[in-house]
Amino acid sequence: MHEIHAREVLKELRLIGAGRVLIQSPEGLRREAEALGGFLEENGIEVMLHGEVNYGACDPADREAKSLGCDALIHLGHSYMKLHLEVPTIFVPAFAEVEVVPALEKNLEEIKKLGKRIALVTTAQHIHQLEKARVFLENNGFEVLIGRGDSRVSWPGQVLGCNFSSARVGGEGVLFIGAGYFHPLGVAIATKKPTLAVNPYSGDATWMKGEAERLIRKRWAQIAKAMDAESFGVVTSTKKGQLRLSEARRIVRLLREHGKRAELLVMNHISYPALEGFSFDAYVVVACPRVPIDDYENWRKPVLTPREAEILLGLREDYEFDEILGVERTEDEPLGVALHGYRNSL
């Protein structure tokens, strides 16, 4: 279950003067979206529920909200991301109702293997308990480092699937709190430090070294498959938080400079079946880094990230995870935004 602060959302909508709203949610929060919609309708606001798949804060449905005549978009389940949006948007994180300290206590001996000075990171679902985790760890003799991160993340210590800037804060190792492998894998590859993932739901702890090595071997295999490719489709997304047009143009230029045929392709939802009609030998996805990594088995042709394309062309040697970075925060910049919602006004 996830904690949604419906009354705070209603308060923000009344500040905007919104009478009609679109609620966008990831698949795992459909029930919460329904409940929030019911609460808002009881309070006199017309609600529409967005039924498309949502990939994160980088994928807001503001265009759809505007075309439907909505006064605001409620983006459920993800933290604020600074984007130019077409309607006022309230980002409403969904905080997991699970305590993290018991899992840390259970795995304390494993955590000690990271060293005394450790970086602590998590996802938006558990960010509200990061302070509890820090206090527990410090009471057990650790020096805990929580990075500020860059402008793409909302809170200190938060990592995204495309941004691990808050993990680059020093220390002997990195402790990740959360479920799933993709975030801690990215942390391990980005920081090149021992990384331990503690799952607060199961109580399990997993070292990422072996997982990272397996992933990197698979990615080198994709690079090897693309070695003989003479033509490349360089794909970027029109999703507002994934549109990396200048980076895509840079990759097209590099490929052409190395004697390859390269064309820029633009689409919203990137999937191989939609590209079957093209004749390219391989693809470079310059959008969400998860597309070529999570979905590569569904691509009949090799699919690379921008950094992997640079390896292919002999421009870099070491494997690095593709990230979408923001600008570095200044020392006097606020470290985060409101925990229970954030209104992005036009």
Rank of each mutant, 00 (worst) to 15 (best):
H2V: 15
H2I: 08
I4E: 08
I4N: 06
R14D: 01
L15A: 13
G17Q: 10
R20M: 02
Q24T: 12
L29T: 04
A33L: 08
L36V: 07
G37P: 01
G37H: 10
E41V: 08
E41S: 15
E42G: 15
E42N: 14
I45Y: 00
L49K: 04
C58K: 07
K66T: 01
S67M: 11
L68G: 07
C70P: 04
D71L: 03
D71F: 06
A72Y: 02
G77Y: 01
Y80W: 13
L85N: 08
V87Q: 02
T89P: 05
F91I: 02
P93M: 03
F95D: 00
A96P: 00
E97K: 15
V100E: 05
E109H: 03
I111R: 08
K113Y: 03
G115T: 01
V121R: 06
T122C: 05
T123N: 06
T123I: 09
A124V: 15
H126S: 05
E131Q: 08
K132F: 03
F136N: 10
E138V: 13
F142D: 04
G147I: 00
W155L: 04
G157Q: 03
G161E: 11
G161Q: 13
S166K: 03
V169G: 11
G170R: 13
G171E: 11
G173T: 07
L175I: 11
F176T: 04
F176G: 01
I177C: 11
G180P: 04
Y181C: 00
I189K: 04
L196C: 04
L196F: 13
V198K: 01
V198A: 12
V198M: 07
S202I: 05
T206H: 09
M208S: 07
K209W: 00
R219Q: 09
A226W: 06
A229F: 05
A229L: 06
E230D: 12
V235H: 08
V235A: 04
T238S: 10
T238Y: 04
K240R: 11
Q242G: 07
L243Y: 09
L243H: 01
L245K: 11
L245R: 11
S246Q: 14
E247A: 14
A248G: 01
I251F: 04
I251V: 15
I251T: 12
R253F: 12
L255M: 13
E257A: 09
E263H: 12
H269F: 12
P273Q: 03
G277Y: 09
V286T: 06
R290M: 05
V291S: 08
D294S: 13
D295A: 02
D295W: 11
W299S: 03
K301D: 03
L304I: 08
T305S: 14
L312V: 03
L313N: 12
L313I: 07
G314W: 03
R316Q: 10
R316N: 09
E317S: 14
E320H: 13
F321A: 12
F321S: 03
V327G: 10
E328C: 03
T330H: 10
P334F: 05
P334R: 04
L335Q: 12
A338C: 12
L339E: 13
H340D: 15
N344M: 13
N344D: 15
S345Q: 12
L346N: 12
